[in-house]
């Protein structure tokens, strides 16, 4: 009798029961959480995942160059040709205090010489960005926005960006211009 009673209250049976209970609770919670999340899940195409700069918000503060996790920032200067005025005296190409309007480095805005200029016809010049040289400092963007059409702007190159879960530049961006876009929104362009 005594033996039987002890068996009934034996910790082994209790532990087994608790274990089964634990398994049931764990399995149930997995189902519940995935159910809730799956119901909230938007289409993968709509769910935003890729970091992009909103050119309208960007204040070209220069942190894109310094704060990206990559050694050379994934932010590059983009040029919207259709916005550009093709000026000879380009605010994004020449420094505001340039002594002479020639291609000497001390006259140029871009510290790496990534902006190339090509004569089209009088008085128009075409500007293109050599992406491999651009470091995303945004100096030209500042110049173009303050004296120009604002056709130069900064954007994150999706083939260079590592899609960090939390974009390090977005964290320090003073104007909250960096947000995620969905897979089918390719680039936030200015055209």
């Amino acid at each position: 009798m005594e033996q039987k009673k002890e068996n009934k209250n034996s910790p082994i049976a209790r532990r087994k029961f608790l274990r089964v209970l634990g398994t049931a609770v764990a399995g149930g919670s997995i189902l519940a959480v995935s159910g809730v999340l799956a119901s909230r899940l938007k289409n993968e195409k709509e769910a935003s995942y890729y970091w992009q700069i909103d050119p309208q918000k960007c204040t070209h503060c220069g942190r894109c160059e310094t704060d990206c996790v990559l050694q050379v920032s994934a932010v590059k200067c983009f040029h919207a040709n259709k916005v550009c005025g093709y000026c000879d005296l380009c605010g994004g190409y020449f420094r505001s205090n340039a002594k002479e309007l020639n291609t000497a480095a001390e006259n140029l805005m871009c510290p790496t010489g990534a902006i190339q200029r090509k004569f089209v016809e009088d008085p128009y010049f075409e500007y293109t960005i050599d992406e491999s040289l651009c470091n995303g400092c945004g100096k030209c963007v500042k110049g173009c926005s303050s004296f120009g059409n604002g056709s130069l702007y900064l954007q994150i190159k999706r083939d260079l960006c590592t899609d960090c879960n939390e974009c390090k530049i977005a964290r320090v961006c003073p104007s909250d211009a960096i947000t995620r876009v969905s897979m089918d929104t390719a680039y936030k362009l200015k055209d």
């Binding site: 050119p55 309208q56 918000k57 960007c58 983009f78 040029h79 040709n81 259709k82 916005v83 005025g85 093709y86 000026c87 089209v120 016809e121 128009y124 075409e126 293109t128 926005s145 004296f147 120009g148 059409n149 604002g150 200015k190």
Partner: peptide, 21 residues
């Protein structure tokens, strides 16, 4: 912030806007 200070140029030499991908 898009400042359109300068008008769009009208090219006479048949210049085409480059396609950038």
């Amino acid at each position: 912030m898009a400042q359109n200070r300068f008008p769009k140029p009208d090219f006479e030499s048949g210049y085409k806007y480059p396609e950038i991908h």
